[in-house]
Nucleic acid binder design. Structure first.
Length: 415
RNA sequence: GCGGAUGUAGCUCAGUUGGUUAGAGUACUGGAUUGUGAUUCCAGGUGUCGGGGGUUCGAGUCCCCUCAUCCGCCCCA
């Protein structure tokens, strides 16, 4: 039997309904904040990611879903969407002015990685990017929209965790201080951390080994080695978040993996997720656009995994609401034709109603209606047709009443 | 890329140191009820026991390979 490709899956039933609910909510909230949707190709030239993510990263080395196409082009199925959005902005010269650009995307992403629960080779992300504004105010705006979105989905127990990772100019001073701290107690750190201290020192800060976290007690803080502008930026963001009622906490060990990140980095944690509590992450990436040969442009953004979010919704709220208002059941050929005509009229009036086209008799039709979760069955037989009415059975209560045909549309939509 | 575990009906799961012709609940189909469902009663498909190979008189069971899923590590834009 044919099977979906490893790491990919079909979205159907209840999970698909949650995806729809989440996407609809995102679009509604984002639009009222002035964000516009952008869709970029799934395929990008490999350089887009090599130059944005960095050659040394594991993403480039082993996690990219890449191949050579029939024209000999080395292409990648995008592992994330930010680089593609930035590429598009540059290509279409949309960053040529200093005007702000607010964009969001919803789409599939690909990573060629080992399967685990909630981690797929094709997964879905929703993200928002803000280009052209370097202020803490723009970050607060983006974060407020994010929390509006999450709150609208009914997610509680959320915690915003923030830090500043400084700038390329201020980072060396911190790294020197941190290396000295590390070397003074290097025997306490794990093997991975010894590798990290050479390759990507900041990564030592979020090592998951308990011994390393203990050894990090009293470590130098990035926020103590910031340049004056970054320090003011960070302080201002905290003032804004407090004034706007966005609960946050400072996490001096929160870092980002890539060099182009600057200043603000954040994650949102959910107490409902257990140990793997990170729901999403983001931050400021003032260096990325120029990295990709665009005009120097400040940017801030975040992305959230739709698969994990849908799973969280299922866990918190159970099955997605799936209204099946009414099934129209005609009895006999003449009634079947009339039912189709009636349904067309009701559809035109905005009613949600389905027609049973199987012609298998009332008993089976009611069984089907009950199994599929319809609220009502509308029975149209010879007796009803003669009187110009329909028998309406409430499948939950078991009660039945008679509605005149010309009142059906109104009564269906009002109840 | 590294380490560990699990694959039996559509779904949730039993199955004895290898032994007759493979099970339960639920779901499904037909009938008691040809215009009244979800509750009852009866009758029944419930399956190449992931796939391939090997050992054996005999493999759901033991061995090897492979595929899929799950857990941990690495990593996480």
């Amino acid at each position: 039997m044919a099977q979906s490709v490893k790491g990919t899956r079909d979205l159907l039933g209840n999970e698909m309904k949650w995806f729809q609910r989440i996407e609809d909510t995102a679009r509604r909230i984002f639009h009222r904040h002035g964000y516009e949707e952008i869709r970029t190709p799934i395929l990008e030239e490999i350089d887009v990611f090599k130059r944005s993510v960095g050659e040394s990263s594991d993403i480039v080395n082993k996690e990219m879903y890449d191949f050579v196409d029939k024209g000999g082009r080395h292409v990648v199925m995008r592992p994330e969407n930010t680089a593609g959005v930035v590429r598009a902005m540059i290509q279409h010269k949309l960053l040529a002015t200093s005007d702000p650009r607010l964009l969001y995307y919803i789409g599939p992403q690909f990573r060629y990685e080992r399967m685990q629960a909630g981690r797929y080779r094709q997964f879905w992300q929703i993200g928002a990017e803000s280009f052209g504004v370097a202020t803490p105010e723009s970050e607060a705006e983006s974060l407020v929209m994010l929390f509006d979105f999450l709150n609208e989905l009914g997610l509680k127990h959320l915690k915003l965790s923030i830090n500043s990772v400084g700038t390329p100019e201020s980072r060396p001073a911190f790294q020197a201080a941190f290396r000295a701290f590390f070397e003074a107690r290097q025997e306490a750190f794990c093997g991975d951390c010894h590798r990290r201290i050479a390759q990507n020192p900041l990564r030592v800060l979020d090592c998951k080994v308990p011994g390393c976290q203990t050894a990090l007690e009293g470590h130098p803080r990035i926020t103590d080695h910031l340049d004056e502008a970054s320090r003011a930026h960070h302080a201002r963001l905290k003032v804004l978040l407090e004034a706007l009622g966005v609960p946050y906490e400072e996490n001096p060990r929160l870092v980002r993996g890539l060099d182009y990140y600057t200043r603000t980095a954040f994650e949102v944690l959910s107490a409902d997720l257990g140990a793997q509590s990170a729901l999403l992450g983001g931050g400021r990436y003032d260096g990325l656009v120029s990295h990709l040969d665009g005009p120097p442009t400040p940017a801030f953004g975040w992305a959230i995994g739709l698969d994990r979010l849908a799973s969280l919704m299922q866990q918190l709220h159970g099955d997605a609401p799936a209204p099946r208002p009414a099934l129209l059941i005609p009895l006999g050929e003449a009634a079947a034709l009339e039912a189709m005509a009636l349904a067309r009229k009701w559809w035109a009036e905005g009613c949600a109603v389905q027609v049973d086209t199987r012609g298998q008799g009332l008993k089976k039709a009611l069984q089907t209606a009950n199994r599929l979760g319809f609220a009502r069955a509308l029975i149209l037989g010879d007796g009803e047709r003669e009187q110009g009415v329909v028998a309406v059975k409430d499948l939950a209560a078991g009660t039945q009443e008679t509605w005149p045909l010309d009142q059906v549309a109104q009564r269906l939509s009002t109840v």
